[in-house]
Amino acid sequence: MRPSPELAILVGVLLVFSPLYVGVFHIGDPTYRLTAAEVEPTDDGFEVHGPYPTWGLDDDIICVGLTDRPCVLERHLLDGANVSTRYGVEFGHYQYEYVYANETFYRVAYDERGGRTALRLEPVPTEDALYHSASPVGAVRAPVRQAVESGSATARQSLLGDSGKLVAESGTYYVVTEEVVRSSTAAERRGEEIEEAVSVLGPVAGLLLVLWGQRGLIRRA
């Protein structure tokens, strides 16, 4: 039994625009494994009970881990150097609030003197730096929140905006790392093939169905 022209046109239109929505189903996409590690304040800085991102604890804290800058300016200030500028203050690629060096947290501060800005670093307690840098667990996305609450979680898309960020829950601090787990099962590989076939062949088949449906409507009229 042949489909009605109206049904053929409807299905055809859906197939024509299939490349726009087929990716929404994440067929064959990699899975992202999120793992939370507790960050404990200690007398000599902090201790992470598990893995944490190589770039550090949080965007608000620099000079922790393998950062994208050597922190020469900050170490220069800690050595007692006087650094000033007449153009105001810019902290790297983005604003940061704290520096970690010599097992101590420092707050970035500056003074205005005679139209110039003098930079300095003020030592602060570890608890203060972690408290003011951390995001509340309710402010992060659901998979990251689940990782904090249960230790681990999975996601179908990258959450780099929230993973690698210091998160606070009930007075305890956590940092969440993200690991890509590539598709490996036969079903997932088959899903990738189906998604690619629909994206490539769907518009062609859809256009043919629309044309067939239009001809059917003309004949019926």
Rank of each mutant, 00 (worst) to 15 (best):
I218P: 01
P30R: 10
G88Y: 05
V176Y: 07
A205G: 15
I194H: 08
A139C: 04
V140K: 06
G164I: 02
R107K: 15
R86W: 00
A197I: 04
R75A: 04
A142G: 13
Y110Q: 08
A168L: 04
Y131F: 08
V16Y: 00
Y98M: 01
L66N: 13
G80T: 10
S4I: 00
A205W: 04
V39M: 06
F46Y: 15
F17N: 01
L159W: 05
E195Q: 11
E193W: 10
S170V: 00
N82F: 13
P30S: 12
F91T: 15
L211S: 09
G115Q: 04
D44E: 11
A153G: 12
R215T: 11
P51G: 07
S4L: 11
G213Q: 04
W55K: 09
P143T: 11
P30K: 10
Y174K: 09
S183E: 14
G191V: 02
E40R: 15
L77K: 11
S152M: 06
V204H: 09
Y174T: 09
E47N: 12
V39W: 03
R107L: 02
I194G: 07
V99G: 06
G114Y: 10
R156V: 07
W212G: 14
S170Y: 09
T104L: 01
F25N: 07
A118I: 05
Q157V: 14
